[in-house]
């Protein structure tokens, strides 16, 4: 069973001179699967995450394609239909837990707010369940009467994660949940998520610009470039056999703690202007492998068992490996 199934999704910003932020994205997230979505700022990864949860807000709008969540069509569902599904089917954790928590409500009140919206629960039942999920992310239940400003950034982010899992959703979307945090705090959250997975069944869409973090946590990584998925592979094979030149460049930009010092390389150039999409491979201007043909026609997305790839040059290598 799949929890999310997207077909040919397009999301634009604006009407007059629209920016085509997400283009022709099809993807499936299986039940209990951890999927990573990685790319540079502006590649459309957050836009896609918000659109899946149908939390896109004007000027963003879905212009084509379908979104199905747990077999139900969400593409055109209105707010009233979606309200009971939020937190119970799909929950979201944003970059900064500080923005996600209400500053004038105690932590306990925020848990109660979410839980009482979605079921007949007593105050006591709410408190017990809140304490239970807080414990899963290593936060003592003594924080329940506290207010967000009394907690550190890392604690707030873990409270936001606890809040996301409290109603046992089938999918959690996390948008750069550790980007504003210190390394040690990021590590704790990473370990919390691995532990949570052992205790509770849920699928995760983890959005980040850090491919190393993704590869460590998730089962499968989707690489996004300029609004399109350019590669999808199991994390285990991607680390040693990346195919798309952009994935390779991202890996080269990443320092590997297990190898002796190697100069991390940047990716020269900039992503294209999404107002006008050329009929060509969008990565070609930055690509060391680009061939004349790459500038003449957009490469199709091709599937090879567990690999999906949008590159006409490196797809020739696929057979050699598999």
């Amino acid at each position: 069973m799949s929890i999310v199934h997207l077909e040919h999704l397009f999301v634009d910003y604006g009407r007059l001179h629209p920016v085509h932020a997400v283009r022709d994205v099809s993807l499936t997230i299986a039940d209990n699967e951890f999927v990573g979505l990685v790319g540079e700022s502006g590649c459309g990864k957050s836009t896609l995450g918000f659109a899946i949860a149908r939390l896109e807000r004007p000027p963003a709008r879905i212009t084509a394609g379908t979104i199905a969540v747990a077999g139900q069509d969400w593409t055109t569902a209105d707010a009233r239909t979606l309200r009971p599904e939020r937190w119970t089917k799909v929950a979201m954790v944003l970059q900064s837990g500080m923005n996600a928590l209400n500053p004038i409500m105690s932590i306990e009140a925020q848990f109660r707010d979410v839980m009482m919206q979605h079921g007949e629960m007593t105050v006591e039942q709410c408190r017990r369940r809140a304490a239970e999920v807080l414990e899963m992310v290593e936060i003592p239940s003594t924080v329940l009467p506290r207010y967000p400003h009394e907690l550190s950034g890392g604690m707030k982010q873990r409270v936001a994660i606890a809040l996301a899992i409290v109603l046992r959703p089938k999918l959690i979307i996390m948008d750069e949940p550790t980007t504003a945090l210190d390394m040690v705090v990021q590590r704790q959250i990473l370990e919390n998520l691995k532990q949570l997975r052992r205790e509770q069944a849920f699928a995760l869409l983890f959005i980040s610009h850090d491919l190393g973090l993704e590869l460590e946590l998730v089962d499968r990584v989707l690489v996004m470039y300029a609004g399109e998925i350019v590669e999808s592979q199991p994390a285990r094979t991607m680390l040693d056999h990346p195919f798309h030149p952009y994935t390779r460049a991202l890996l080269r930009a990443l320092p590997d703690p297990e190898t002796p010092y190697a100069e991390p390389e940047g990716i020269p150039g900039m992503p294209p202007d999404l107002h006008e999409i050329p009929q060509a491979c969008l990565f070609a201007p930055r690509c060391p492998l680009a061939e004349p043909e790459c500038l003449e026609a957009a490469p199709p997305l091709k599937s090879f068992s567990e690999l999906t790839l949008r590159c006409r040059v490196t797809e020739r290598e696929v057979q050699h490996v598999s």
């Binding site: 590590r187 990473l190 460590e216 285990r236 680390l239």
Partner: peptide, 21 residues
């Protein structure tokens, strides 16, 4: 130990030192 390290995770190894905050 906090640096993301997919290779260590693929080998199923624990962190070299428990990370505590």
């Amino acid at each position: 130990a906090s640096i993301p390290n997919p290779r260590r995770a693929f080998r199923g190894e624990a962190l070299p030192i428990p990370v505590s905050g």
